[in-house]
Design a protein around this nucleic acid. Structure first.
Lengths: 344, 344
DNA sequence: TTGTATGCGTTATCAC
DNA sequence: GTGATAACGCATACAA
């Protein structure tokens, strides 16, 4: 008899389905059926519910996972949880909750070793699916995970060739519209601060920039293309380079908000005023951009929309087998005109 | 014999410890011993390692959890993942990883129903510990979790009476220093935008504000105390109220950065210039505050320090039994002087 | 509908 | 050190 719980120091063992069955005076299978929503005789149901309440019974997810191979946990692998990924995480977390799932997160900070460690951890934890922003050199590891039966959903940045669902924004068109706006108000020398062009997101945005120029019959002058490596420092350096050109640009398009912060940093140091001296448009719309001086004109990603879509796609794939063909969704970004741009 | 895996559509069943044992020609127990770092005969070790590689074996965390009641997963319950909680999450995630743990997150957005749902989900998932920012009306639910054997660590906001470890910042002193700075440079009418005073964080910061005034022999005039309810809108409203006083304050202290954004919003709408017309100091230092015009003077919370401390405390409590007395750590905040304050 | 029995992948407890 | 074997808590196939 283990009825005497003599060791008080240890974690108290919580009630199991057996305890519930015993107390409700029904069979263990009946309790299980109740828990899984199958029809139950009314009297039994009440007994069971009473027992569950009284015993504070909570299903043991580990045991369920072992039986069913379903954990109701989705892995999220991200480089950081800044304004962008943080917002993503928040919305995604809520959206997944709708279907009874939650996010197990792993933050790799761009470190390859950590990414691989994260993938290992996830496969040990038997996550139901993986959501991540693509990273090129992770192809093999991620592919193994997929072959191991873990559905993958890519957001933000693509990783071509993977058997995965994808949810992106229309990077190219959005960037094109942003730059077109600058051209519309008379700018002719428009600089771009790019992310790493090996990243699809950076490349697409760069191509959009080219599209806008080409559309107007303007050449793509490489001296106006400054790599900012997605970082604030990179953004500052890139801007410094751009602004020291003999023919400095009159407008700058930043491929993300982090680098735009770097751009602003440079402007601040060099006493360059926005938009009096230079116009600025940035991808992403972190909350504080609306407040900066006259406000920063931005390409606002529909982060919530991306999160909802990921949750939808995930739910469908997890529910209806795995045979569905993989799809790519592309969501439209809005351009928000604020005070950081003005006609030349 | 299930050696023929005829169904290709389903999730392929991954290798188990049994497969490894078979291939390595050792007993299953030996493999387990190897996996858990116990001494193993050299020849066996090599066999096992080869098998693990070849079979791509990954320990099944669900099975381990079932046996040991340890999941290596820590729950994080937060209202949102904005700049503050997002940064917290990022640092904490990394710090926990050091000890082989990861974060399962749940975002409640202030909704009581969601909080309770989150707690239920966590207890089903058998998290090893819970990290959260205290919320008053959750006392009973959280207490149950603790009684159920889940260690709790509180950060950001206290929830008095709970058997938990606590990691906070020196809210009161930090706020006092911030307001003292305003007094030092000659301000006499200093307004405060407070959070919900039922939250310890808001109250402490308010008390710090009072301390600074009292220290200088100044009265705490309630008309200068404007509740901003932690929200951007609340911050805007509060500021509007403060600035429409016949004797409007010449400086404002905002109890967090979200409300400070609201303050700035109000200033922008009312064409009030910072710091020419009014000085501003805010709690929290989101990345973009350093760039705003002349920069916002802030009380910077050591978010990384808090995260590391939480990880340390957690590790200790999870390792060395539960009998250790609960502790409260208070970390010091730095004041970063930037351009949003100036002498009257 | 309900009860019973089996097994999921590990760890832990034994004798060896 | 090693090899068998009994749990862990639950879902499920099967017989009733």
């Amino acid at each position: 008899m283990n009825d005497d719980n003599s060791n008080e120091t240890d974690k108290p063992r919580s009630a199991t389905i057996v305890d519930v069955a015993k107390r409700a005076k029904v069979a263990i299978g009946t309790v299980s059926r109740y828990l899984n929503g199958f029809p139950i005789r009314r009297a039994n149901r009440e007994q069971i519910e009473e027992a569950i309440q009284a015993l504070r019974f909570k299903r043991n997810a580990a045991a369920v996972a072992m039986k069913t191979d379903v954990t109701h946990v989705v892995g999220l692998l991200a480089p950081s949880f800044d304004e962008f990924h943080g917002a993503m995480l928040e919305h995604l977390s809520r959206a997944l909750r709708r279907d009874g799932r939650a996010l197990l997160i792993y933050c790799h900070g761009g470190d390859t070793r950590l990414m691989e460690d994260g993938l290992d951890y996830f496969s040990t934890q038997r996550i139901d699916a993986l959501v991540m922003s693509g990273v090129a050199h992770l192809f093999d590891r991620v592919d193994q995970l997929i072959e191991g039966g873990v559905p993958l959903i890519l957001y933000d940045n693509d990783l071509a060739g993977l058997k995965a669902d994808r949810v992106f924004v229309n990077n190219r068109e959005a960037a094109m519209h942003a730059v077109r706006h600058l051209l519309d108000i008379g700018h002719r020398r428009v600089g771009i601060v790019t992310g790493d062009l090996s990243d699809s997101a950076a490349n697409e945005r760069y191509l959009g920039y080219c599209d806008a120029l080409t559309e107007r019959g303007l050449p793509v002058d490489q001296q106006y293309v400054a790599p900012g490596h997605w970082s604030i420092l990179g953004g500052t350096d890139a801007t410094r380079r751009l602004m020291s050109l003999r023919q400095a640009p009159t407008a700058i398009f930043s491929s993300n908000y982090v680098m735009a912060a770097g751009v602003l940093r440079c402007f601040k140091d060099a006493k360059i005023r926005v938009p009096d001296d230079v116009s600025l448009v940035s991808f992403d719309d972190p909350p504080l951009f609306g407040l900066y001086e006259a406000g920063i004109t931005v390409v606002a990603q529909p982060i919530n929309g991306v999160a909802q879509t990921i949750a939808d796609v995930l739910e469908r794939r997890l529910r209806s087998a795995r045979e569905t063909p993989f799809g790519t969704t592309s969501l439209r970004c809005d351009i928000i005109l604020r005070g950081s741009t003005r006609p030349v």
